[in-house]
């Protein structure tokens, strides 16, 4: 059998998705599938275009992205902080880790009723939930990352005169970085998942709100559009995290080989 070129393989891998979309279009257009259940891809595209033209889509995406970013920054920042101190200090670990592990067992989405009672349907509640969802993957991976920095390298750094901040910057943080970035990717996944749930339950803006209000008017095309938007934003965040990995982990031979 003849081997395909790299270009040929790239084309090949898109064959199935393109076929599915074409088939979907045909099935809906032929009337075999009600547009109430699933609108045609062209209808979703048109809905997207209309919302884009009216500025509504950008507004909702902006609202969702802002929540994601703020929640991620708060939860990630706190998680990183606790991961750092608990990973590098036994006393801090003994003091905080058990408590954090207990809290971790509470599914953060189960707190939604409580969060609505606390914050109403304002921004704070959604940001709180995102921060909570982001906290644990960042915390656990930072903690684990710091613990997995080889003791040999730390000893070497010390014997070469590195202390405190310098030892942290040269040895501990770069050594923990691969794990921290794994945490970042998990956390990004949790960010969007949390937002999807939080925005569909209580919101006055954002993609989830757009989907829920479209549902009331039976605009299935907008609902599908919202789902696709979430997928696209999640994918985009993941690509950004991978770009960071490529840039910061260049030294890692595993990345060189990939």
């Amino acid at each position: 059998m003849k081997k395909l070129s790299l270009h040929g393989r790239g084309v090949l891998s898109w064959l199935v998705p393109v076929f599915v979309i074409v088939a979907w279009q045909v099935v809906v257009q032929a009337g075999w599938l009600s547009t109430r259940i699933l609108p045609a891809p062209s209808a979703v595209l048109a809905a997207g275009w209309n919302l884009l033209a009216s500025g509504e889509l950008v507004e909702h995406i902006g609202a969702s992205t802002a929540r994601a970013a703020v929640g991620f920054a708060i939860g990630g920042g706190i998680g990183f902080f606790f991961g750092l101190i608990n990973g590098s200090n036994r006393l801090a670990e003994d003091l905080f880790d058990t408590t954090l592990q207990m809290v971790r067992n509470v599914p953060h989405l189960a707190l939604i009723p409580l969060v609505i009672l606390w914050f109403g349907i304002g921004e704070e509640g959604k940001i709180f939930l995102v921060a909570l969802g982001v906290f644990f993957p960042i915390y656990l991976n930072t903690f684990h990352g710091i613990r997995s920095v080889p003791a040999d390298l730390i000893e070497m750094g010390r014997s070469y005169g590195l202390k405190g901040g310098e030892l942290f910057r040269e040895v501990v943080l770069p050594g923990a970085l691969p794990n921290i970035l794994v945490g970042v990717r998990y956390a990004l996944g949790f960010t969007w998942l949390t937002l999807i749930v939080a925005e569909t339950i209580s919101a006055t803006s954002g993609i989830g709100y757009m989907a829920m209000s479209a549902r009331e008017f039976l605009q299935t095309d907008v609902v599908v559009l919202a789902i696709l938007m979430y997928a696209a934003l999640g994918k985009f965040a993941d690509l950004a995290a991978r770009a960071l990995e490529r840039r910061w982990l260049r030294w890692n031979t595993a990345f060189l080989a990939a």
Binding site: L153, M156, S159, Y160, L162, E170, V171, P174, L249, W251
Partner: peptide
């Protein structure tokens, strides 16, 4: 006083010259 270990103990995330300049 400087020590050379059994394994080189270079920092994998620093280029060779940066490893030499460590400290």
């Amino acid at each position: 006083v400087r020590i050379m270990y059994q394994d080189a103990r270079l920092l994998p995330w620093r280029k060779v010259a940066e490893n030499v300049a460590l400290g």
